[in-house]
Amino acid sequence: MRRVLFEEVRKRFSRQRGAKIVANWGFWRPTADDPRWFWPINGVSFSIEGSGRRLGIIGANGSGKTTLLRLIAGVTQPTSGWVEVHGRVLPLLELFSGMQPELTGRENILMGGVLLGMRRREILGKFDSIVDFAGISGFVDMPLKHYSLGMMMRLGFSVATHVEGKIILVDEAWGIGDAEFQKKSAERLDELRQRGATLILVSHDLEVLRRLTDEILWLHGGRVEAFGPSEKVIARYLAAVQSGKIPTQPA
């Protein structure tokens, strides 16, 4: 069963540095308007369940999209509220996740794969397919720092999408590589979804969202502004942009 459930989730971050946070630890509980904290996620509830779902997330910069993905990925914990995630999460938050410039492509495939939750045997079994998809055969034993940016991105994407993820999180940075690789990566994500994975996609590109998602969660100021079928939410979003409620090119 795949399921992502948020109930009244709040997440606060400190504006202070580590040393000061510790100095203040335990002496007070921050209030909602305390200037020392801010709340990128401030009371979010939603849930999606079942396989093959495609959820898009929109909102201006600073509306909490990335924090929401990181909460689902389990990289960060909610300050209060209830988060439930069933199914192995595959975070494509950034394509170099865990990539090490001093290691060779081969070593990076192993390390990246293990970090993302694969077993070594599984990675070795898929090794050729990973190298093929990234189009880096002939470079696998070269240190990653000598790769071109495009090669690194393709390798990162290839390793990540060979993980049997059940809930795939994609941050907007996924429009990568040349046109051909973009097409290939979109097909790859769709293939994973057809095998039952749930896709959660953050993007500012309404065209991409229209094409790749069925539902959209619209975040505004750390809260849910709207949640429903893509077309409906996009229409409301566009109306809000036109009436000047939110800026078109988020600052």
Binding site: A32, D33, P78, T79, G81, V83, E84, H86, G87, G117
Partner: peptide, 18 residues
Amino acid sequence: MTKRFPADRRVNRTPAPS
């Protein structure tokens, strides 16, 4: 009276790492 947030956070994840 300012509203105080309790530190009650609950997280439920499956599968657990092996």
